[in-house]
Design a binder for these strands. Structure first.
Lengths: 235, 235
DNA sequence: AATGGTATACTACCATGGCAGCGTGTCAAC
DNA sequence: GTTGACACGCTGCCATGGTAGTATACCATT
């Protein structure tokens, strides 16, 4: 059962990590679902060693909780994790964009504006997945322009908890249009070369997630583990 | 050969990670030294599996470089890594201290001032190791007071590259006294409840590492791997 | 002497086996 | 009905064996 895409360049453990991470963030694997080395290695067609390494990394990122001799479970979406991720992201990414503005060149500025146009198209077609992808690409473009690649890696690492929320929030009415407007404000400020304006526009944009969490009424449900073992409820 | 401290509560892989990390940061393992799974598992008295997991985590933190089928080498102290770590730390820790001031209570304030007194004593005795330990404790106290534990974990993770430099810099004349003065300025501002003053004092303190790097004339030597394999040069 | 081909030693990577620890179900004793 | 003891099954953890891939050393060829 080789569900994993054939890729000899990357270690199996990394491929497993990416796959399971995607399944958790997208919601395919619900909170508190049980993941065992044996089950995953069987499902993905690899041995238990790379699976184990992937699970350890997932636990370091806070996406799963490993309890020795008991089991491994998908971590619930805790408000604390989201708030903390927001804190980290806001302070780092707002610092990034300042340097990005200073080092901005015409080529990447053009890419940013192209991205915006595609976003507006995705909004018109209600294409959630495409919008998600473009959203990611926009922020990554700014990060790369700043030159702080390692910092961006940290942000991405912390960001996963927010991404779990975002995957739900995009279904909210008019949400994508609102975000696109914020993106536009950011890129406009960047185009003007106004560092402070860009930073504050980004800050405002990033704080959107807080109000989103409140709107969704995300509670701390499922914070503790289930009393009885339950298997993954995948379709 | 069980060099590892007996600790059944922690996974072996974590213990190996902590041990090797300490050896790299302290300089016991010099840049470009070769670390192989077999050699380490032999030296530490554990099997290759936990060693391998530790090396993977070390590579994720940027302390070693793993080249598949070739070898694992201690990463050189690159200026880029230090600068990037400084960037991350400054922006996160300066944000932390603001919340720390707001939530400060008398008990921790007392601990901070106690710590300062011990620092002055360590300076008088030229006790580098003790000072290093107190320095760590001071920053950790502030971080815990802020309540942002996850953020502090990120800072600690990024900080290791600076720590490699710090282990050398403490030997510089009057360096510890200078740092103690900066620590005092920070704690004074915290005691006064002045968030902005505390943040700027901390920022000034953190930027000390940059001038230190310049003073040491740290170059990018050893950036590329040696042409011929060389074994670890441990004593 | 310079070069090309090959054997070999060593590496990180993955697969698999064994094990201690924990949860749970069963059943006897009260 | 309640409680306690015990055995079983499952889990993650660690040890070990096998393998593909790389760099080096060696030697034949030119």
């Amino acid at each position: 059962m080789a569900i994993l895409p054939a890729n000899k360049q990357l270690r199996l453990a990394v491929q497993v990590f990416e796959t399971v991470k995607e399944e958790i963030v997208s919601g395919a694997l619900p909170p508190n679902a049980q993941l065992s080395e044996a089950e995953l290695s069987d499902r993905l067609g690899v041995s238990r060693t790379p699976v184990r390494e992937a699970l350890i990394k997932l636990s370091e990122d806070g996406l799963v909780r490993i309890i020795p001799q008991v089991g491994t479970f998908v971590a619930p979406i805790s408000i604390d994790s989201v708030n903390e991720a927001q804190f980290i992201r806001e302070h780092l990414e707002c610092a990034l964009i300042v340097d990005a503005v200073r080092r901005m060149d015409k080529a990447t500025l053009r890419l940013l504006q192209d991205n915006l146009e595609q976003q507006e198209r995705a909004v018109r077609y209600d294409d959630w997945d495409k919008f998600y992808e473009l959203d990611e690409a926009l922020h990554t473009l700014l990060a790369k322009a700043s030159g702080h690649l390692q910092t961006w890696r940290i942000v991405q690492q912390s960001k996963v908890h927010m991404d779990r929320v975002r995957h739900v929030s995009f279904r909210m009415p008019d949400h994508m249009a609102k975000l696109t407007g914020q993106h536009k404000a950011i890129v406009d400020a960047v185009a003007q070369g106004d560092e402070v304006k860009a930073r504050e526009a980004l800050r405002c944009h990033l704080r959107e997630i807080i109000t989103t969490v409140e709107k969704l009424g995300l509670s701390e449900t499922g914070q503790d583990l289930p009393p009885s073992r339950r298997r993954s409820a995948r379709s």
